[in-house]
Design a protein around this nucleic acid. Sequence first.
DNA 1: CGATTTTGACCTGCGC
DNA 2: GCGCAGGTCAAAATCG
Length: 130
Amino acid sequence: MELNSEHFLLLPQPETASTTLSPVNPGGRACVDYTLQTNEGYATTMEGKVKIAFRTKSGVEVMDDGYKWRKYGKKMIKDNPNPRHYYRCSRAGCKVKKRVERDREDGRFVITTYEGRHNHETPHSSPPYN
DNA sequence: CGATTTTGACCTGCGC
DNA sequence: GCGCAGGTCAAAATCG
């Protein structure tokens, strides 16, 4: 499966996303039913920046989208009792970042946030949704 | 042997 | 300006 902003709802950005909304639970979140195993997801497109976040109902945060990810950091967020993992594409020139954290209320949910776009083809080519 | 992963420390940005 | 939170990088160890 290709994780492109085009595959998600391109929301300009959650209005008044400064107080009431949470990073993973915007007031105007888009409850979509894409071809993915995702339940909810929203994409925020900024000037030249792409932020895609969706909640997966998989107990496994390791969803192989066909890219090689290299973990470069782990952080405990105050808002979440669960640690947040920071991944990065191992391909040279690929500055795509991936953030994975478990849901704060439902440990069986995983919030995956992709930032940026891949500038190379999938080094794996094994899309189970093809 | 090389790449990748893990934990900690450090740095930056924003808020107050 | 300082404090807090979040994010990134680095060094070492491990696995393939």
